[in-house]
Design a protein around this nucleic acid. Structure first.
Ligand SMILES: NC(=O)c1ccc[n+]([C@@H]2O[C@H](COP(=O)([O-])OP(=O)(O)OC[C@H]3O[C@@H](n4cnc5c(N)ncnc54)[C@H](O)[C@@H]3O)[C@@H](O)[C@H]2O)c1
Ligand SMILES: NC(=O)c1ccc[n+]([C@@H]2O[C@H](COP(=O)([O-])OP(=O)(O)OC[C@H]3O[C@@H](n4cnc5c(N)ncnc54)[C@H](O)[C@@H]3O)[C@@H](O)[C@H]2O)c1
Lengths: 248, 248
DNA sequence: CTCATTTTGTTCTCACGTTCACAAACTCCT
DNA sequence: AGGAGTTTGTGAACGTGAGAACAAAATGAG
C-alpha cells in the first residue's frame, strides 16, 4: 500500500463551507496545502542544518515524502519564490513558508490537563523550536497545583481566564479525560481562546470562528488495523494461529 | 469556521495507487470512510453505555459530528444494516463496524522509545478498551531496561525480533527521537511489522505493503497558527504589544 | 387494506485534490 | 550570441469526496 501522505489529520472542524470562493482572491491556500506546508518547513530546516543552500522541487519533494508536482503547486500558492533552471533558495523559501504559516513569531500555548499526556506535552521540546511557547499548565486537581513540570508550575484550572487575558493566548491544548473535554473547551472559548488542539477522544462542539483539531490515537490505530486485516487473514494476535505451524 | 471533522491525520503513506479499481469489487471502502468508522464506533459505544437501543442516522451523525447523508453513505459501504423507517440497532451496528475494522479481537502492539511520550502511551488506557494490547515496551537506553512501566518491563531494543516473532505483532509504535525513527522503522519492517504509527517528526520510507501513519503535534499546531493568523492580525504573542510588564 | 409518516440506501451533481504534461524562464557551455 | 539542458509554474484531465435530493422500504393509524 502506498498512498500520498497527507498530513491529514484531516481538515479543520467547522467552517460552513460558505465563502470558499468569497475570499479576497489570489490569497486563498487550499486546506490540503496548508497541512503540508509544515512538512516542507521541517525538510527545509533539516537542509539548512545540513548546509544545503539551494534545492530543486524534486529534492525537497523527496525529503517531504510527496510528489514533486504537488510540491510545486503547493508552493505556487505562496508566490513565485523559485528560479527556473535553478531551484529554490533554501533559507529564503523557509522564511516565506514560515511567514505564510505565521510562525516567524512565537505563539503562546496553554495546556489543560497535566496527567500522563499533559506531562509529556509539557516536556516536549518541539514546541519551542517550532514557534510555540507553553505559557501555562492548568489542571483541576488541587494535588497538582504548584508542582513544577518542565519548569512551569501547574496552576488551578480557574486561572484560565486570567492566563488567557494576561498572555494573549490564542491556542489551547486539551489533555483531560474525554468527559471533561467539552467543558474545558467551553471555558477556553469563553475566555477567548480561538484555536484548540484536542487530545481527548470526544467530539467537541464550538462556535463558528473557533478552530478545533483533534489528535486521536485510537482512531489512528484502528485505521491501521483495518488495513492490516485486509492484508491477509493473519490476525497476528493470538499465538495460536501461528503456533499452529507458521512463521508469519 | 466549522468544517466536517475528519480524522484526518491523513491517509496512509505510500501505496502506488495502482490497484484502486483492481479489488474484488463491492468490498472496497473509501479511505475517508475508513477514517470515520472509528468515530462512529466510539459514538455507538457511548450510546450503548447510555442504554440507547436504537438510533437514527441523524442522531448518530450528530454524535459523531458529521453530516447525516455522509454517515448513511459511509455505512452503506458495509452493507444494509439499518431498517427504513426505524433506524439502526446500536449494538448490531457497533458489532458490524468493529468487525469491518477488525477490532473484534485484540491486536498486539509494541511501543519503541519509552521516554516522555512512550511513558504516556504505555499508561494510556484507551489501548486496551479499543481492541489493542501493548505486549512490549522497547528502548535502546540500558538505564531503562527492566524498569516497570504500566505493568510491563522495558526491554532492550534488540529484543524486537524475538517479541515480534513470539507475539505476532503487526503494529508498532515509534516514540523515539526523530533521528532514530527511520532506523527503528527499518528494524521493525525487517522483523515483520507491517503497520507503523509514528510520533517522531520525520518522514519514514518503508517498502510497499507496510502502512505508516504519523501523528505530528507540531504540524497540528502550525495548521492552527495559520488559521489563527488569518483571523486577525493579533499575534497575541509577546506581552510587549499588550503590556511590557505582566505576570506570565 | 390503504394511506400517511418515517427513515434508509442510493443516485446525481458539484467541488476539491492529485497528477500529468508542457511552455516559459533561467543557466551554462561552446 | 546561440543552443542545449534544467527546472519552475500552471493548464488540463482525472479521480475522490461531500451534500442534496429522492425513491424504496418499513411502521403504524384508520
Ligand atoms: N496517555 C496517552 O498516551 C494518551 C494518548 C491519546 C489520548 N489520550 C487522551 O488524553 C487525555 C489525557 O490522558 P492522560 O493519560 O493524560 O489522562 P490522565 O488521567 O493521566 O490525566 C488527565 C488530567 O486531567 C485533569 N483533569 C480532569 N478533569 C479536568 C478538568 N475539568 N479541568 C482540568 N483538568 C482536568 C486530571 O486532574 C488529570 O491530571 C485523555 O482524554 C486520553 O484519552 C491520552
Ligand atoms: N513528548 C511529547 O509530548 C511529544 C509530542 C509529539 C511528538 N513527540 C515526538 O516523540 C518522540 C519522543 O518524544 P519524547 O519526548 O518521549 O522523547 P524522549 O527523549 O523523552 O524519549 C525518547 C526515548 O527513545 C529512546 N531511544 C532513542 N533512540 C532509540 C533507538 N534507536 N531505539 C530505541 N529507543 C531509542 C531513548 O532512550 C528515550 O527513552 C520524539 O520524536 C518527539 O519529537 C513527543
Amino acid at each position: 500500500m502506498n498512498a500520498p501522505t497527507s498530513a491529514e489529520g484531516g481538515p479543520i472542524e467547522s467552517t460552513p463551507v460558505g465563502d470558499v470562493t468569497a475570499r479576497v482572491a489570489g490569497r486563498e491556500i487550499p486546506e490540503a496545502t496548508v497541512a503540508r506546508l509544515p512538512v516542507y518547513l521541517r525538510a527545509l530546516h533539516a537542509m539548512l542544518e545540513h548546509g544545503t543552500v539551494t534545492c530543486s522541487s524534486e529534492e525537497l519533494a523527496v525529503a517531504a515524502g510527496v510528489n514533486s508536482a504537488k510540491l510545486r503547486k503547493d508552493l505556487s500558492y505562496l508566490g513565485s519564490y523559485g528560479t527556473r533552471g535553478v531551484g529554490y533558495d533554501v533559507d529564503y523559501l523557509r522564511y516565506q513558508i514560515a511567514r505564510e504559516i505565521g510562525v516567524t513569531q512565537d505563539w503562546a500555548v496553554i495546556i489543560v490537563g497535566i496527567g500522563n499526556l499533559g506531562h509529556a506535552l509539557a516536556n516536549y521540546s518541539g514546541f519551542r523550536t517550532r514557534g510555540f511557547r507553553v505559557v501555562a499548565l492548568l489542571d483541576a486537581d488541587p494535588a497538582l497545583h504548584g508542582r513544577q513540570v518542565a519548569g512551569l508550575p501547574v496552576r488551578p484550572f480557574d486561572d484560565l481566564e486570567t492566563v488567557v487575558r494576561d498572555s494573549g493566548v490564542a491556542i489551547g491544548v486539551i489533555a483531560t479525560p474525554a468527559l471533561a473535554a467539552q467543558d474545558v473547551a467551553d471555558r477556553m472559548v469563553a475566555a477567548g481562546v480561538t484555536s484548540i488542539l484536542n487530545f481527548a477522544p470526544s467530539v467537541l462542539s464550538v462556535p463558528a470562528g473557533v478552530d478545533v483539531r483533534k489528535v486521536d490515537l485510537s482512531i489512528e490505530l484502528q485505521i491501521l488495523a483495518y488495513h492490516e486485516q485486509r492484508k491477509g487473514p493473519q490476525p497476528a494476535d493470538d499465538a495460536a494461529s501461528r503456533l499452529a505451524g507458521e512463521a508469519s
